[in-house]
Design a protein around this nucleic acid. Structure first.
Lengths: 221, 221
DNA sequence: GAGATAATCTAACAAACGCTAGAATGTTTG
DNA sequence: CAAACATTCTAGCGTTTGTTAGATTATCTC
């Protein structure tokens, strides 16, 4: 069975090819961004804080590994995840790393500037309270991402507009802000702004990918 | 928020570190082997058909990424998966690659020598039939792997002993053979042997990791 | 058709990786 | 304590990868 080894090598080789494509910091960030909504290269580059050229190169690799698809629209090229399962794998890899890598846990802790860390907001409880109107769920991502999918009962106020639009928010209820997920800074900054103005605000670490992952509904619009 | 970028980079960096460790053909093969049972370096090297030195180097990387743990026992070092979730990720990555990479599908097809490929044996149906004694489920992996976990109602006859022990098998019922999973050659070879001797035999592509993954029970003993 | 814009391709280089072979370590066994 | 064995460490190699910068392609707009 000498021929078997070669086929076997080919099989693992293919899985490795795909996994390697996932396994780069920038490409993981790009995938996370694509979990929010489909985007053009330039926007991806800006949001991942890399050059357009580099973004393009990374996206090419992701496409070669069949993790994303590209679609041309005039002079723009829009990229999107090739499969729901890619978002799922991203969330799983991140969770496994969070659970097992100390350095990651420390990094996350340093993101939560209010070192309370206490009561990691429970997503099902939030869902219930949002449904009954006991809290306001606030999506602080750019509006296009909100439109592509958001938590049920969530309102959209992008972080960039938050200071201008504080009057839309109630002081009577707690505000639960979320963004792209645990690695994203937007919700943390939003909570900071809100708390400084005297709102009762806290962060939900989930993004839509995490919400979906845990079997909770996600709304389009 | 200049400091935010650095922390963010660190976070993706960590997930990438772990993912990179998974993303190598040999290390994937080693992980798959470790999904079966804990093993010593020498055995892993032999089963993955690489040198002990190389196996040791790869295992070191897996350990550094906290994907596996090592335990010294006399002059041997036993490696095992650090977490159930690692097996789960392996199965998921493999399934995603199977679904999306053409080269992989072709490779798999060339493994199934009987190009029937028809009726990909349904695992739940097998479970039911095995329970009712309508089929014999046969585990053809080495005995130690069987002992560390096997499908319910499965009997163990390692491939290496199969020719000698054919008399233990009934000719009246279908025999369903399985091994380490879709990439493993053992079950295919067993089926070939059995069919040539006039048994009704077919292959179940699952291994215990796939079985577990799909929420079916796995027995110890 | 000229100029502007979005994205990709090419070339180049340093850094990281996969693999091999030789030396070294730790443990058991006589 | 010496010999045998399992495993790891070190050094070296060719290859692949991440990144940048310059040239190129495709599309839109005037």
């Amino acid at each position: 069975m000498r021929e078997g080894r070669e086929t076997k090598d080919l099989l693992y080789e293919q899985v490795a090819r795909m996994t390697k494509a996932i396994g780069s910091p920038k490409r993981l960030e790009l995938l996370e961004l694509l979990c929010q909504s489909e985007k053009r290269v330039e926007l991806l580059a800006e949001q991942a804080q890399i050059s357009v050229k580099l973004a393009s190169a990374h996206l090419k690799q992701l496409k070669l590994a069949r993790l994303v698809d590209a679609r041309r629209d005039g002079k723009y090229v829009h990229y999107r995840l090739a499969d729901e399962a890619v978002a799922d794998i991203w969330v799983r890899l991140r969770m496994l790393a969070e659970e097992r890598l100390l350095e990651l846990q420390m990094g996350l802790r340093s993101l939560a500037k209010t070192p309370d860390a206490l009561e990691p907001v429970d997503r099902r409880a939030v869902f219930g309270k949002a449904k009954r109107g006991e809290v306001v769920v606030l999506d602080v991502r750019p509006e296009a991402e909100y439109a592509a999918g958001h938590l049920p009962f969530a309102r959209s106020i992008p972080l960039s507009e938050l200071r201008r639009r504080l009057n839309e928010l109630p002081r009577s209820k707690p505000i639960v802000a979320y963004c792209r997920g645990p690695f994203c800074l937007l919700a943390g900054q939003a909570v900071e702004v809100l708390q400084r103005r005297g709102f009762r605000a806290l962060r939900l670490e989930d993004g839509v990918a995490e919400w979906r992952f845990h079997g909770l509904p996600v709304e389009l619009s």
